[in-house]
Structures are given as C-alpha cells and as structure tokens.
C-alpha cells in the first residue's frame, strides 16, 4: 500500500472513531413522576420522551426522591401514612418506612441514611433512618411544615411553615432550632444552592421567592413575578431548582401555567415559559440539558430544553402529577 492510501485509511478510521465518540444521541435517563390522584408512578425515558412504564404505588403519592447510591426510589404515600421504598431499576417494593402522619415532602441528608419528613398535620419533622427503618427523632416545628431543604454539608435543615410564613433553620446535629426567617404567605418549598450559600424559599400566596443568605440568615433578595396579561393571584410559586453552577434558578408558578427562569446574579427573571396547567415541581436531568415539570391540572409533564430555553414536548402521565426525580441511568 502506498503512503497516500495508508494516510487515507487512517484519516477515515479517525473520522469514524470521532463520529462514534461524539455522537449526538441524547443520553437516556429515567424520569419518575408521582401521580397524586391515580396512586401511580409514571416512568419516562428522557431520550425517547415517552412514558415507558406506569407502576401502581401507595395512596396519594407526592414527594419522591432517590437515595444517594441511586439504588432506591423513596415515595411519600400520604394517604397510607408511610414512605415506600422501591428498587429504582425493577420498581419492586422493597419495604415501607415509618413516616408519621400524612407525609408530603421530605429530604435526604447528604450522608444518605437520614430522611427528614414533613408531617403537616402534626406540626412535626420526623427523622427516619432508612437503613434501620426506625424513627430517630420527631422535631416539633412551626405550624403546618411543608417545604424541606438541607444544606450540601448536611448541617442545616430548613423547613417552611405554611401557616406562620416562616423558614425554620434547624441544626441537624442537635435537631434544635437555630433561627426563623419570615418569608411571604404560604411558603411551600425550600432549596439550597449547590455551594450552600443561599436558601431559596417560594411563597405560594405571597407570590414571591425569598433568597436567604444561609450564613447570616438574613434576606438577600425577594423576587416578584409579573407576567403580562396574567392576574397576580394566578402567579403562585411552588417548586424551585437551581443549576449546579449556581447561575440560573427555575421556579414553577402554579396556575399561571409558567415557569420563571431567573438569573441568580441579578435575581432578575430572564424568561417565562408556558408549560402545562398548575405547574408544581421540577427536576433536571443529571447533565442539566433538560428540565421536567409536573403540571398538575393538565395531567402532563413538560420537557424544557435548557440550552434553547424552550418547551420541546408535553408528555401525558397520570392524574395530578405532583413530584418528579431523575435517575442518572
């Protein structure tokens, strides 16, 4: 073979390898959505963007999360007063955990084994060891706790109190309260950013998101929303998610049927995106290329392309989709 021929073949091989390595097929992640009214979980393939499986779970499933090792899927089965544990891949029911009454939202300690569950009716946070299946503590908190956030270092738990409009900061080492910060009316959700410097708290009736400095526990900013043509009382912030680089926050705005995209450096709304009706919670894919929103009243999930900031699809799921989590497989 002459020199030109060998070079030609090498180039072709390199080009083929390159095309295989950098193929632009979307990565397929597994998206789990709780359907509050149906008592089911819809499982969506994030590459095909369709429901691949629907699994019967407990009654009134709402909060949903994955364990840190991605082995288990945890679901608040509110009407069964239990947290169900499923094998995340096979969806076999592994066990049920004690949870206190009417569990709605929960958050896992970064260490992985402690689950902090909000029991709205009993004004408690129940702390459960998910390995030992036991209740370790019950922390009395403000009236009707709902939102649960935990700092990335696991040291501080924040729970929001629906009736007293507070964000309560709790020391997880002692389970003792550290501080309370007043936010706006009916706070629903608390989310720390990735470096733990801020806590973002949404107020459903107040119509705002309060950004709290996690170290000083003072209010850094209060974000209000204005959508032309939409009455203010229809703008009801609930779920909040912040990108890992901390640059953007996404907020579900309930019956305005939109999510807000916020530039965190300025706390200004970059864009509003129409998704589905009564948008409630959100979750990113691990590569943060897609965002999935649960739209409770249109019974579907919207898929947002984060690079283009555009809604690319709506996927019908069960009735009243509530929570969503994405697995890295």
């Amino acid at each position: 073979m002459d020199r030109i021929g060998r070079k030609g073949i090498t180039t072709a091989v390199i080009a083929l390898l390159a095309s295989l390595l950098f193929a632009t097929t979307a990565h397929a992640y597994t998206v789990y959505v709780t359907n509050e009214k149906d008592g089911t979980v819809s499982i969506i393939d994030s590459a095909k963007l369709e429901v691949v499986r629907t699994v019967k779970v407990g009654q009134r499933p709402r909060g949903i999360t994955l364990t840190k090792d991605h082995r288990w899927l945890l679901i608040c089965a509110s009407d069964d007063n239990t947290v169900q544990v499923f094998d995340a891949r096979t969806m076999e029911l592994v066990k049920s955990l004690p949870s206190g009454q009417d569990p709605e939202l929960f958050v896992l300690h970064p260490a992985g084994n402690l689950l902090y569950i909000a029991n709205e009716e009993d004004n408690l946070v129940t702390v459960v060891d998910i390995e030992k299946d036991s209740v370790l503590a019950e922390i009395p908190v403000g009236v009707e706790p709902e939102g649960m956030g935990i700092s990335p270092d696991g040291k501080v738990l924040v729970t929001t109190s629906e009736t007293t409009n507070m964000a309560h900061f709790i020391d997880t080492a002692t389970n003792a309260p550290i501080d309370n910060v007043l936010v706006d009316s009916r706070p629903r959700f608390a989310e720390f950013n990735a470096d733990g410097s801020q806590v973002w708290v949404s107020a459903e009736i107040g119509g705002t998101v309060t950004v709290i400095d996690a170290k000083t526990r003072t209010v850094t900013a209060k974000i209000a929303f204005k959508i032309p043509g939409v009455p203010q009382d229809a703008i009801q912030p609930v779920g909040v998610r912040i990108t890992k680089d901390g640059k953007r926050a996404f907020v579900a705005l309930g019956p305005s049927n939109r999510i807000a995209v916020i530039e965190t450096a300025t706390f200004k709304v970059e864009k509003y995106l129409l998704v589905g009706q009564r948008v409630w919670q959100l979750a990113f894919t691990p590569d943060e290329k897609l965002l999935f929103t649960t739209n409770g009243t249109s019974n579907d999930v919207s898929v947002v392309d984060i690079d283009k900031l555009r809604v690319v699809k709506s996927i019908k799921v069960g009735r009243y989709p509530w929570g969503v989590v994405v697995a890295p497989f």
């Binding site: 032309p228 009455p231 009801q236 019956p255």
Partner: peptide, 28 residues
C-alpha cells in the same frame, strides 16, 4: 382565605385570561 363563602381547597380565581391559557398573543 378566599372569602367566607368559598369552600374549595383551590384558590378562587374569578376569571382566566388568554395569557394564562396560551403563549400566543393577548386576545382578551
């Protein structure tokens, strides 16, 4: 919180606007 004669757990919203219902132009 929605008024003495409103029994629903959903908030009472008097009217809906076109902007709430689609991302097309305001047609109210």
């Amino acid at each position: 919180a929605n008024g003495a004669d409103w029994p629903c757990v959903q908030r009472r919203v008097a009217t809906v606007t076109s902007a709430q219902m689609w991302d097309g132009p305001d047609v109210d």
